[in-house]
Design a binder for these strands. Structure first.
Length: 431
RNA sequence: GGGGAGAUACCGAAGCGGUCAAACGGGGCAGACUGUAAAUCUGUUGGCUACGCCUUCGUAGGUUCGAAUCCUGCUCUCCCCA
């Protein structure tokens, strides 16, 4: 199975430029994907691009991860109705380093093989470009008519869509991205750019630029934007993005995110986000259909990705924690845990500290959760939750807002586990 | 530069002198049902020392017994014309 076929059955192809398959058969080809360094960690929205690069490398080709230091300073108008905030250079450099470390988990940057992965930053060549040079050597080759015809631009110019206009800076974005492609084409013989389907317009500006300026041929391949079956944005939780950095999103939460995937989505995700071969995937899907409630797909999906992004250990920890929190976990089980297990289970759960004296003297539950700690943002909210039967302490439902919390509630003599609803845990540490 | 429209809670959007902590929709949160799913139904969605009180309707003043609602200045946004 070649690269295109592989991506195809996985549902990872939205659009391909004709001739790419022949090109890939002909020789080892270099391709790149752009990543915005807007943060110092990748999030799972980036994962699709990373998977594409990985498949590409596995197929014997050479992947390049391009960190958009320059483009990140400009802001891509695609898919956004607002101007972007600009980043400064030191932030960009810091972010680039962090991103590379994460990418190294997936791509082979180190080997001596001719198709070892590379990382580049477009800031490095864009910074040397003078304005005059840019408009003469690049701008001259592309007409404004061509640029205006792009969807990403049209959307922003159409007052009906409610968009807030677009600055010249963002209008220029596609040229800058095109320049990247041209640069990589010339410097590294890079003939393919991949990305999300929203990038099609930007990528084709690049292939067009290469064709007009050098007469060479370059290709575009885009994957569908990942959407959830219910139409909401993929990769977001109440707390924002799901990050790969365990400091930002704990492995437990990461695992939970995938485990909570809906049936429809799981079927698509397991193809996209794991490297399981086609046969295995088909079997899993069948199994899942026979007994949906056992959530074979979600379990496997969460296992594969958590293991890949974090580690086997992290995965096992997350499973254990999940069993305690969601399984038949009871108050007794909770109290039986030894301290280190207990802490690892609740690693990544929001933590609050209160003074020992407060608990010893006994403290009203409302004061404890809304005032001494920020488990609840207001007393009113807490009262409402209690009225709605949504509060548990140490896995036991609490229905009395006048309850006094004292030493008898402590687990391992120093912890109290507060739970809002089914899924929101907070750990109170008494010190 | 000229003319017009507007700024209301997380978002959209009503309200146009008292009965407004502010309709309605979306979103959020919780409950029931479940598979830690989806759909559905129910409750809730400014704060507090809670049958009451306090702070909110762009911002600063003013009129009034009383203002989200009327007047004035300011800031910002959008539209049309040049």
């Amino acid at each position: 199975m070649n690269f295109i076929e592989e991506l195809n059955w996985r549902g990872m192809i939205h659009d391909v430029m004709p001739g790419l398959e022949e090109q890939l058969k002909k020789e080892m080809t270099t391709a790149y994907v752009g990543i915005d360094p807007t943060a110092d960690s990748l999030h799972i929205g980036h994962l699709v691009s990373v998977m594409m690069l990985k498949h590409f490398q596995v197929a014997g080709h050479k992947p390049i991860a391009l960190v958009g230091g320059a483009t990140g300073m400009i802001g891509d108008p695609s898919g956004k109705s607002q101007e972007r905030n600009l980043l400064d250079e030191s932030t960009l450099r810091h972010n680039q380093e962090c991103l590379k470390n994460q990418l190294a988990k997936f791509l082979d940057f180190e080997s001596n093989a001719s198709n070892a992965a590379e990382m580049v930053n477009n800031y490095d060549w864009m910074i040397k470009f003078g304005f005059l040079e840019f408009i003469r050597d690049i701008g001259k080759h592309i007409t404004v008519n061509y640029m205006m015809a792009k969807d990403s631009v049209k959307k922003r110019l159409d007052p009906e869509s409610g968009a807030a206009g677009m600055s010249f800076t963002e209008f220029t974005y596609q040229l800058v991205q095109g320049t990247d492609f041209l640069h990589l084409y010339e410097a590294k013989n890079c003939k393919l750019q991949m990305g999300g389907s929203d990038q099609w317009g930007n990528i084709t500006t690049g292939t067009e630029l290469i064709r007009r300026k050098t007469g060479g041929e370059a290709f575009a391949l885009t994957c569908p934007l990942i959407k959830k079956a219910d139409g909401t944005k993929f990769g977001k939780t109440e707390d924002g993005n799901v990050w790969l950095d365990p400091e930002r999103t704990s492995p437990y939460k990461f695992y939970q995110f995938w485990l909570n995937t809906s049936d429809e989505d799981a079927e698509r995700y397991i193809k996209i986000f794991t490297f399981l071969p086609k046969d295995d995937v088909s079997k899993l899907i069948e199994k899942h259909k026979e007994a949906p409630h056992t959530r074979v797909l979600q379990n496997k999906l969460a296992e594969e990705i958590t293991t890949m992004v974090h580690s086997r250990q992290d995965y096992e920890m997350a499973v254990e924690a999940s069993q305690i929190l969601f399984g038949s976990g009871t108050a007794e089980q909770l109290r039986k845990l030894n301290e280190s297990t207990f802490l690892s289970v609740f690693d990544g759960v929001p933590q609050f500290t209160v003074a020992k004296a407060d608990i010893e003297n006994g403290v009203n539950i409302v004061d404890l959760l809304a005032e001494k700690t920020a488990v609840f943002s207001s007393k009113g909210e807490l009262r409402r939750t209690i009225q709605g039967n949504g509060l548990s302490i140490n896995k036991e439902k609490m229905t009395n807002p006048d309850l006094i919390i004292d030493n008898s509630f402590l687990i391992s003599n120093k912890y109290i586990l507060a739970q809002k609803g089914k899924k929101n845990y907070s750990l109170i540490i008494v010190a």
